[in-house]
Computed example of a mutant assay.
Amino acid sequence: MGWVVKLKKRFSFILKWFFKKDKMKIGIYGPPNAGKTTLANRILRDWTGDIMGSASDVPHETRRARLREGVRIEVNGKSLNIDIVDTPGLATKIDFHEFLKYGMDEEEAKRRAKEATEGVIEAIKWLDDLDGVLLVMDSSEDPFTQVNVTIIGNIEARGLPLLIVANKIDLPNASPARIKSAFPQHTVVPISALKGLNIDNLYKVMAEKFS
């Protein structure tokens, strides 16, 4: 049976090489305020001089997916051409009361909650059109949440290459090791998208993972 396994692996490699894309569509996913837009801005600033949009402390500020095409990353002789999709924050429950904490009146809070719910649905739909995922987690928080487990299950079910980004390592209570322990089956790269810490290593791993 060993030769069957080897043959399957060889055939899989040939198919991957034959159908290799010139450009990969990479989605940036994660719960609200994990740093998705900050990471998107960091990547775009480093490689295009532009940004995706403004980041905010208000949860679900990104209410619609944003696409930036034609980003070229070059690391150690490897070139990676990607389209970046910055998606709305994922949540299993969205309560309008959380928006009231940010000074919104009830009508505005309910509207924002509705838009946030629609954004989550849109983000999940985008998975069917992606070639890989950067899953951003706040390394100062418990990673073993229903949101993280659910999205990883969705990504694995689709067979998409997944790279977990342990963000906010600049915070004093950050622990990327907790994320590695929670999801040992996946590659985890600790960074600070805000400060740019270890960002070059992220680009290196991205070039290896998605090319």
Rank of each mutant, 00 (worst) to 15 (best):
V58M: 15
A182T: 08
I191C: 09
I28H: 01
I151Q: 00
G53Q: 05
F13N: 08
V85P: 00
V188P: 03
I155N: 02
D50S: 12
K209I: 02
L194T: 06
D46P: 02
G103A: 08
E69L: 10
K36A: 03
I43M: 02
G27Y: 04
A193Q: 07
E141Y: 00
K180G: 14
E141N: 07
D170K: 11
T38F: 01
N76L: 11
P190Q: 10
R68Y: 06
S139A: 12
P31T: 05
D131W: 05
G77W: 04
Y102Q: 08
W17I: 12
K25I: 14
R72Q: 12
S192M: 03
I191M: 10
D142C: 00
W17C: 11
W47D: 03
R72C: 11
D170N: 12
D83T: 13
D86T: 02
R111I: 10
D142K: 10
T62E: 05
I26T: 05
G159N: 04
V5F: 13
D105R: 09
N173S: 15
L67I: 15
S54D: 12
A177S: 15
V189Y: 05
G35V: 04
D131H: 11
L67F: 14
V85Y: 08
T87K: 02
A193D: 07
H97T: 15
D131L: 05
L135Y: 12
G132I: 07
E141Q: 12
P143W: 04
K16W: 06
A182G: 06
L15F: 13
R42M: 08
R112N: 13
L135Q: 01
E74N: 11
N81F: 11
T62I: 15
A174G: 03
V147I: 11
P88W: 04
R63T: 15
S175G: 06
T37F: 00
M137Y: 00
Y29D: 02
A91Y: 05
K78L: 12
N154Y: 09
K195Q: 14
D131M: 07
S79H: 04
T48Q: 13
I51S: 03
D83Y: 02
I73M: 09
I164C: 02
F183P: 01
K209D: 01
I43R: 00
G89S: 12
I169W: 06
N33I: 09
L67E: 14
A123S: 15
M1G: 15
D57K: 14
L100N: 10
R64Y: 06
Q185M: 14
I82C: 08
I26Y: 07
R10K: 13
F18N: 04
I169P: 02
G153F: 03
V188L: 07
T187Y: 07
P88G: 06
A91N: 05
N148S: 08
T150S: 10
L162Y: 04
K101M: 14
D138A: 10
M52V: 05
V133Y: 01
F19Q: 08
R158T: 05
L130V: 03
Q146Y: 00
L44G: 03
I151L: 06
F210R: 04
G103F: 09
N167W: 11
S54F: 08
N173L: 15
F144M: 00
K114Q: 14
D200E: 14
V188C: 07
D200R: 10
R45S: 13
A34W: 00
M206Y: 06
T187L: 14
D105I: 08
S56W: 00
D46E: 11
K8F: 10
